[in-house]
Structure formats: structure tokens, C-alpha cells
Amino acid sequence: MNVRRSAPAVALATAVACFVSPASATREIVVPSRVQVVATEFQLALSRRTIKSGRAVVELVNYGEDDHDLRMLRLARGAKMLKIRTVLPGDDAQLRATLAPGKFVLWCSIADHRKLGMEARLTVTKRT
């Protein structure tokens, strides 16, 4: 299913985007923390349970059969909800954010998926 939808992007990427001239200047490299969340029916599996605070990339991969999305909330008063839009089966999407240390809860907000088990915890520890 994802193939058909992502194909235009593929073709454009190979045909057009790669003909943009390369950036030659070297910039300071910031290595973000990364975690991959694999969604299936009805579970979320994390590539690691703990990541460092600061700049982070959270990736949602949908290896299931239904659509899934991701909500992510730090368990603290007034924390802002982080979101990854609906990801089609076979597809993926990334969220770039600056994460404060703490415990986060992650879930899929589609239909009753959270109740069925699509929820997980992530610990963010202070980057030293």
C-alpha cells in the first residue's frame, strides 16, 4: 500500500531533487538522540528505552496493516503534546523535537488502538 503512495516522491526524488547542486560548506554537526518506534497491531516497540535529552529524532515505522499515528507526552504538568501524523502501512515518519529529561508516554491515538495495547514508555535522561 505504501508503495503506490510513496512512488511519486521516489520518482521526483530521483529525477529532480538530486539535481540540486550539493552543499559544500561544512556546518557544525549536531548528533541528535534517536529512537525508532515500530507500530503493529496492537503494539508499539521501541528501539531503545532510554535516550538522552536535547535534540532528538523520533521515528514511527508502521509495519502493521492499519493506519497508525504517534502521540508523545512528558509526564509533567503543562508538557506539550508531540505528534506524528497518521502513517500508512509500510510507511514511516519522523518527529524532530527538543526533549527535556523525564518520563514520556507514547501511544497511537487512532480509534481504540491505545486501549488495545499501543502504548509505551520512554525515559529521557539528562545529556551530560
Binding site: 561544512t26 556546518r27 554537526i29 549536531v30 548528533v31 541528535p32 534517536r34 529512537v35 525508532q36 528501539s47 531503545r48 529524532v57 521515528e59 515505522v61 514511516d92
Partner: peptide
């Protein structure tokens, strides 16, 4: 492409 080291376990 941004010269960031790859993340074999965490990035598709």
C-alpha cells in the same frame, strides 16, 4: 547527507 553518523538501530 548532513554528515551525521548513521543510526543503524534507530533510523529506517
Amino acid at each position: 547527507d548532513k554528515k551525521v553518523p548513521i543510526a543503524p538501530l534507530d533510523a529506517r
